[in-house]
Each structure stands twice: as C-alpha cells, then as structure tokens.
Design a protein around this nucleic acid. Structure first.
Length: 209
DNA sequence: TGCCAGGCCCTCTTTAGGGCCTT
C-alpha cells in the first residue's frame, strides 16, 4: 500500500561502514494511515568490538552483542519485514549506508528509497533550535519512547516526528495524505521554491477532493 | 583496544569552505 512507510534506525559501532563500522542493533516501525501499526527490533552480532564511547552513548555492551543473533540472520529478517515498503530515517544518509552495507553482507537486496526527517524538518521547521532528533522531539512535544540512542526508541520518536510532519503538511499546508513519494519530492525541493511547491501541491490536492 | 566519515545544506558559492546530523 502506498501510504505504508517503514521508519528505520540503526545503532552501530561507528559512523561509516566504509571505515569498518558495523550495526549492533536495528529497529523498524511501520506507519500507516497516520498511526504506528507494527514494529521489529533486534540486537545483532557482526563479530566486532563495541568501543567504550558507543557503550556509553547507547548502553549496548560487547556482552549484549556477543549474545545477539548473527547480523546476517537479523538483516534477513529485517529485509523480509520491510519488504518493498519505502523507508524513512533521521539523517537517512547514515542509516541508508548501514542498511545497504549490512544487507549486502547478508546477501539481500536493498532497493527501497529513503526519505529523511532531518531534510524534511529543515524544510518545514526552520524555526526549530536545531534538527537533532531529541531537540525536535522536545520542540514538537512528541511522546517519550524510552532511552534515546537505542534503536527502537529512536525509531519510535522518528515515526512520531514523521506523523507530525504528515499532520502539518495536511493541516497547515493543505497537502492531503502526504505519502512517501511526496516526501521525497519535498525534501528535494530547494528552500527558495518551498512556498510555491507547497501551495501548488496543496491546491492540486484540493482540486482532486 | 580507537581513530574519526559521508552526505547534505547554506552562503561571505558555483574554480569552496564550513556546519550539521547520525553512531
């Protein structure tokens, strides 16, 4: 279904899979028709060492990773869970990199398009103090989802942010049922052209009602 | 046990540099 969107978040051992960093945890939250309808979460064992500062940041320890299922097994499950559903992440370039790298290791395809709530937030909420996930959660008074920097909690907050974005697009800018394709077009729209883009799309949607 | 990337955006730009965001 076109309105179905999968929100994903990884915890990792570093910032770049190209530098040897591996995922330690993945969470996926399914958003459909303005609500969270399903979720998947798992730690994963990529056979790598978790640096102390990552443990301090996330609470994920080497012992937790050692006891987790193999990364390839988890990624195969995650791939089946997502299917062909388009993806959303907060700073999508980061999560897309790990999604593609870990799926490639697991021998799975990674063809889903990624929309980015950082890019969308910068377009829609220039008045926000900054566009870190925690700041945006406070700015929008989103419900708390548990410890920050754990995959499921961060995916749930990102899903709440996505729902807020969809709600505002509908109520403030007149865009009816903004789906993933619209979000991709919106985030690619130049800042200077945004007012016209939203006005034009809102009007186009209104004419179809 | 540790060093530090990649992509995107803005502007004092585009023949570039610096800041943000993720772990």
């Amino acid at each position: 279904m076109a309105s179905r969107i999968a929100v994903i978040d990884f915890e990792t051992t570093g910032s770049s899979p190209g530098q040897g960093a591996r995922a330690t945890e993945v969470a996926i939250v399914i958003v459909e028709r303005g609500a969270v309808v399903d979720s998947y979460q798992s730690l994963m064992n990529g056979g790598v060492w978790v640096p102390p500062f990552i443990t301090q940041l996330t609470g994920i320890t080497n012992a937790m990773v050692a006891e987790a299922p193999p990364a390839a097994e988890v990624m195969a499950q995650a791939s089946r869970f997502v299917g062909e559903t388009p993806l959303v992440a907060h700073n999508a370039a980061f999560d897309r990199g790990f999604w593609q790298a870990e799926l490639a290791r697991a021998g799975c395809a990674a063809a889903q398009p990624f929309a980015c709530t950082v890019r969308l937030s910068r377009r829609l909420y220039p008045e926000a103090p900054n566009h870190q996930l925690g700041t945006l959660a406070r700015f929008h008074r989103l419900p708390s989802a548990g410890r920050a920097h754990r995959a499921l909690a961060d995916a749930q907050v990102t899903a709440a942010l996505l729902l807020r974005i969809q709600q505002d697009l509908s109520e403030r800018w007149g865009v009816a049922a903004p789906e993933h394709g619209f979000l991709m077009a919106l985030q690619a729209c130049a800042k200077a052209r945004l007012p016209g883009f939203l006005a034009q799309h809102g009007a186009a949607q209104a004419l179809r009602r």
